[in-house]
């Protein structure tokens, strides 16, 4: 049995809504957006977990809170046996380099005024990872890993294309020799042909360096291709999780089912099926009572409007939060 590298337990992250002067005078209670609401899951060492959901479902907030880029409002994150939320900032710095992030936008996540060498050197010196005289060698090593040459070292981000910048972003994360990579929509801003290059690169690096990866994306095709397991989120909660193949073959939650059917298949003969989803994701400020998905769910009944379904384990590895789960088949 493989060991658990990352364990998220009942994590809550909420953001206060700005109050107007009138609200303050009238002493209205502060309201919050519960971006991540009681989320628990585990990532085993060496696996790739895909996190999917539509915009505003809390997937990016979840990722940032795991790294403590946001301070959490509840719950626990245990990474490699250490409680991330209990660490002091100097301790956190020592732990954090084991867990690195790659962000979506390759344009805004690199400092335009720093050369690639400056960026990489800064990381090495801040974390005192290697002696001065070995720095250049280490920098060249990671650039080589992401398929870039020595001539990239003294150039600025503006001199690279989107795909190359994303390679630099990955190099920047890898220079720390992390155990885990959290990739937040790493290929969403790229064109298909470049996207494929980066996906191949991530898979190769994962195998070579024995990385564990949390891969966040709204693109279901990419997630299916890259992940071992998939976690589906809706309005701050996990609605379903399970093995990738199994989950795509037989989704148990109506939302997963709809999400999979709505993604246009590359097939000129497909008419998209008869399935239509009505309505839009409600605002996370006014989360519907009962099951969060009930206003849009074709199977919703009275119970769904009042009782929130808990996330239950159907069989080892497969969890779903629904009163009327679809007939997913257990593993043969």
């Amino acid at each position: 049995m493989s060991e658990v590298l990352l364990s998220v337990e009942n994590m809550v992250k909420q953001f206060p809504i700005k109050q107007t002067m009138f609200d303050v005078i009238a002493r209205k209670p502060k309201r919050y957006v519960r971006a991540v609401d009681d989320v628990s899951f585990q990532v085993q060492k060496g696996e790739t977990v895909g996190l999917v959901g539509e915009s505003g479902c809390g997937k990016s907030t979840l990722a940032k809170t795991i790294c403590r880029l946001h301070s959490p409002d509840g719950g626990k994150v245990v990474f490699d046996g250490m409680d991330m939320f209990g660490l002091r900032s100097d301790e956190l710095r020592r732990v954090r380099y084991k867990m690195q992030m790659v962000f979506q936008d390759p344009y805004s996540s690199l400092n335009p005024r720093m050369t690639v060498r400056q960026m990489l050197t800064e990381i090495l010196s801040v974390h005192k990872l290697c002696p001065k005289e070995e720095r250049t060698a280490r920098e060249l090593e990671v650039l080589d890993m992401v398929g870039m040459g020595e001539n990239a070292l003294d150039r600025y981000p503006s001199q690279f294309s989107g795909g190359q910048r994303q390679r630099i972003n990955i190099a920047r994360a890898l220079i720390m020799k992390p155990d885990m990579l959290i990739a937040d929509e790493p290929v969403s801003a790229l064109d298909v042909s470049i996207q494929a290059q980066i996906i191949n690169l991530l898979i190769d690096l994962k195998n070579e360096l024995d990385l564990t990866m949390l891969f966040i994306s709204h693109d279901l095709r990419v997630v299916k291709y890259i992940s071992d397991r998939v976690v589906v989120m809706y309005l701050g909660r996990i609605v379903e999780m399970g093995e990738t193949e199994e989950l795509y073959e037989s989704p148990c939650h109506p939302y997963t089912d709809i999400l999979l059917k709505a993604a246009p298949e590359v097939d000129p003969d497909s008419d998209g099926g008869e399935y239509v989803i009505h309505g839009e994701t409600p605002s996370p400020i006014d989360i519907p009572g009962g099951c969060r998905f009930h206003p849009r769910c074709p199977y919703a009944d009275e119970k769904c409007k009042t009782v929130e379904p808990p996330l239950v384990e159907l069989w080892p590895g497969r969890c779903v939060a629904c009163h009327h789960r679809l007939g997913g088949q257990g593993p043969a």
Binding site: V192, S193, I194, Q195, A196, Q197, I199, N200, R221, V222, K224, Y225, I226, T244, E245, V266
Partner: peptide
């Protein structure tokens, strides 16, 4: 373009 898209299952390498 078609070969770049992850249409096949896992393990089939993309050809960017």
């Amino acid at each position: 373009l078609m070969r770049s898209m992850p249409l096949a299952g896992k393990g089939v390498r993309l050809e960017p």
